[in-house]
């Protein structure tokens, strides 16, 4: 079993600040972290490895600093890491990103054939969830998105059974390997990393590839050039006027709210 997990370094969007003058991100204001959904993806791979054996690789595209999240992935349980980094990748939207990653996956699978690819549901900086399914299409393998449980993996029949979250419930899906899963946070709890992993991670140096290390690459499909979408403008929506503000002591304000609500017969009936 060879599982590859695709991971992304993201700014911690909980604390990132926007420069109000330029409407751009102040990247210095937030630390770069392993995308939280990807941490669950690595953890899911570790769980599968524990049950079915095999090895786990992680793959990331990003600046050289992204080696940090590969080390983090090794802490959680990855055996190997690959980083593709090149100025030619910069400015990629989801289409160009899935193209670049699929080329790296082609190379990885030549050396170590891939049975399963796992991605986080989405990255918290873009929130799109489009790269995982895009990779699956490019490799022509079945994608299963929004996975909340890997129910069964059978190495002999090559069948995989998973639960996929849908509106108001889930569906049980069977597919065959190789396939690609994108996982929800519900799939697992991030465990504390075992000490040997931490030691390994501290010393780990991932394999680093530039565009020239990948085969059959159409450079027009990379980075900004290969991205059909662009950001037209950034704006803060006009501030709405807002409603009625109550005044007075807390008790009085609450009383006014309740009076207003209870008077409105269309909202409540008290029987």
């Amino acid at each position: 079993m060879h599982i590859v997990v695709c991971v992304k370094q993201v700014p911690d969007t909980k604390i990132i600040k926007i420069n109000p003058k330029t409407n751009t991100l102040d990247r210095r204001s937030a630390p770069a972290i392993l995308n939280p959904y990807d941490a669950h993806a690595v953890q899911a791979a570790a769980g599968i490895k524990e049950a079915a054996g095999g090895e786990i690789s992680v793959l990331s595209m990003g600046p050289p600093q992204a080696v940090e999240i590969i080390k983090k992935s090794v802490e959680i349980g990855a055996d190997r890491g690959y980083l593709i980094t090149d100025r030619a990748f910069a400015g990629a939207d989801t289409l160009a990103t899935s193209y670049a990653l699929s080329k790296a996956l082609d190379r990885i699978s030549k050396e170590h054939p891939i049975d399963l690819i796992i991605c986080g549901k989405h990255a918290i900086d873009g929130d799109t969830g489009q790269v995982g399914p895009g990779i699956a299409r490019r490799l022509d393998i079945p994608p299963i998105t929004n996975v909340i449980e890997v129910t069964d993996i059978n190495k002999e029949t090559r069948k995989v059974k998973v639960k996929r979250k849908i509106i108001n419930g889930y569906e049980l899906i069977e597919t065959e390997m190789p396939c690609l899963l994108t996982v929800e946070k519900e799939i697992n709890e991030i465990a504390y990393s075992p000490m040997p992993n931490m030691i390994k991670a501290a010393r780990y140096n991932p394999v680093i590839w530039a565009v020239s290390d990948l085969e059959d690459v159409d450079k027009t499909q990379l980075g900004l050039k290969g991205s059909p979408t662009i950001v037209g403008k950034m704006f803060t929506p006009p501030k709405p006027e807002g409603g009625h503000m109550f005044e007075g002591a807390a008790e009085d304000q609450v009383k006014q709210v309740i009076d207003v609500l209870l008077q409105n017969k269309e909202l409540f009936s008290v029987n």
Partner: peptide
């Protein structure tokens, strides 16, 4: 879940842009 899933796959095959959410 299904709308995003199908749109992501279709955008890849049609090599076109897809804006999420």
């Amino acid at each position: 879940p299904n709308g995003k899933d199908v749109a992501s796959a279709v955008a890849t095959d049609l090599s076109t842009g897809l804006t999420a959410d």
